[in-house]
Design a protein around this nucleic acid. Structure first.
Lengths: 343, 343
DNA sequence: TTGAAAGCGCTAACAT
DNA sequence: ATGTTAGCGCTTTCAA
């Protein structure tokens, strides 16, 4: 492989000149720059990432800590994690990182020590952590890091770290306000399985808080149906909510993987949307679009949140901006799966 | 940060001794090893990844090239790519890589030049490319690379590179054999949208080949219904297949994102599974399990294929094994969504 | 506007 | 069984 010295020799300039042409950190005459660029092109030169990292103390890598739902060969199962949703964030993160000159390192160890491995080994310039829990053991480790860290999620105590996330609490309030305005007084959330709450996943808690507080304010009865995604589990979880005279007249579904099953169960029960029951989905737009019926939804702009996380990380690396928490406000798109209740 | 020299000083040994203790490339007495390990622990030492890469010419990083379906700010839309399926592979790749001592670099540029950036810059030791097309511009670039490359998929010409994938062709044959044995003579595939075929995605072509050749052999009539995942698109695509006296009596669905819509359309048409119509899904098991109905399926073992890709990459790095193509044989799990046709 | 040279932290000969 | 040391390829002072 060609080295920077090869380029320098070929262009007839000093090594440092090549470096400066490449980094733009020095004014270089047009003539010299042209010679260097020609040599670079002719040799197909690409700087050695490791050498650059060693000399400059910068890797141009962003570490992305993403727990996976099932990690083969490990005891750590995380059925509380939805890959499909995670990927929506990644789809926002990776391209933005690239655009800003960073590569993305995927770290799937669900383990505070992985954090240390990454920053202490100068493996990445900054860390973005996903699937944050209200009390997340990784946060303390990240707050120690020499490296900026951004959390996607909102823990009880961010330990001074920056956070970005969707404002699930306001989303919950918004959903209830919308339904209450239509006259609904018995509302249920179809939510992730109880393990998600046991893990104290940040998004789930905030959603419930928004829903229940606003329900109280609106004088509406509110209940939660946590469930796995499988069709039979959903049917079972929905039974208490949909049976009896006090059955819910509206559902807020905050469980993207369960959406197909929910719609199927409703259909089987001959409940038409929105005449017989109102439904609001809370999920990334691309997931809402894949459903069997058009759904009124509160879009979780996962991609743009991911991109924002990258921007915050890069800003921190530039020494710009203090630690902050950014919550993206919720908006509701009415797609006719909500209306006034029958009774 | 502590350096290897700090550790050496603290342990009272030479720098190289520390290096050898860490790498295990030399016999070290138990006493010395203990001293070094103590010093490492006390200082919280982690080797500098860049320095190590520079000195050893190895990064311990695997690059994963994954085109994303929509890359914000780019013209390159790839609606032919299903993130959910991609992630199943990643879920197999990342943990296996970690177990073998590698980190995973996510490269989402859908661009042959990204390939060069990665290997020419000594950014990764090996490259795994996903979403391979029959004629993929990345392959030629990869075959030039100084770095081993593994393709997940099977192009027309692998240019000497190793490939791993599910044997979609045998999956197609298996599906038809199963259905034909039940007496079906009119079978349709519900497949990815036509853009997927225009892209000549490797998996789609092989699937169709298996299905159509075996249909011919079995004397069955075979048709293809390519469709987007959205409910209305699926309904439209299924119409010609399900209407009329010559309608298909069995469907092979090879389009994971469309599965919910397909099941919904069938239900709306009052077609019961399996009495009125047989259905076989071809998808990763975790996706089959999320559907509204239990489906007979041919499981695409995406995770294990991902893990295999990693193992092949690492083997290549060790100089073991020649380039090869590994196709994982298909098996069918009968979950009672198939039976004999009515007529 | 450009050059020369001293490291960055590690590995792997080459010694002993 | 351990120590010494010359690079690996780059960035960045310090000089000119």
């Amino acid at each position: 492989m060609a080295t920077i010295d090869d380029v320098a020799k070929r262009a007839g300039v000093a090594t440092s000149t090549v470096s400066y042409v490449l980094s733009g950190k020095r004014r270089i005459s047009a003539a010299t720059r042209a010679k260097v660029q020609a040599a670079v092109a002719e040799l197909g030169y690409h700087p050695h990432a490791g050498a650059r990292a060693l000399a400059s103390a910068r890797t141009n890598v962003l570490a992305l800590m993403v727990p996976l739902p099932l990690t083969p060969g490990t005891k750590a199962l995380r059925p509380d994690i939805d890959v499909n949703v995670l990927m929506q964030f990644v789809a926002g993160i990776a391209p933005r990182a690239r655009a800003l000159g960073y590569d993305v390192l995927l770290v799937t160890d669900d383990d505070p020590s992985a954090t240390e491995r990454v920053w202490a080994g100068s493996t990445a310039d900054a860390i973005i952590a996903m699937s944050v829990q209200a009390e997340d053991p990784r946060i303390e480790a990240l707050s120690r890091a020499r490296t900026p860290a951004i959390l996607i999620g909102l823990p009880d105590d961010p330990h001074g770290l920056s956070c970005v996330d969707f404002d699930f609490e306001s989303a919950g309030r918004l959903a209830i306000r919308h339904l209450a305005a239509h006259g609904h007084r018995r509302i249920a959330m179809v939510g992730p399985p109880s393990v998600t709450f046991e893990r104290r996943m940040s998004f789930a808690e905030r959603m419930v808080r928004g829903l229940s507080e606003q329900s109280a304010a609106a004088g509406a009865q509110f209940s939660i149906a946590p469930t796995a995604a499988r069709r039979d589990a959903v049917a079972t979880a929905l039974a208490p909510v949909l049976d009896g005279p006090d059955r819910a007249t509206a559902l807020v579904v905050h469980h993207e993987a369960a959406l197909p099953s929910v719609l199927d169960v409703l259909r089987e029960r001959q409940l038409r949307l929105p005449q017989d029951i109102s439904v609001i989905a809370v999920c990334p737009p691309s997931i809402a679009e894949q459903q069997a019926a058009p759904l009124s939804s509160i879009d979780v702009p996962a991609q743009s949140i991911g991109a924002t996380a990258v921007e915050m990380a890069v800003a921190a690396l530039r020494g710009e901006g203090a630690p902050e928490t950014r919550l993206v406000r919720a908006e509701l798109t009415d797609r006719a799966s909500t209306s006034a209740p029958l009774a």
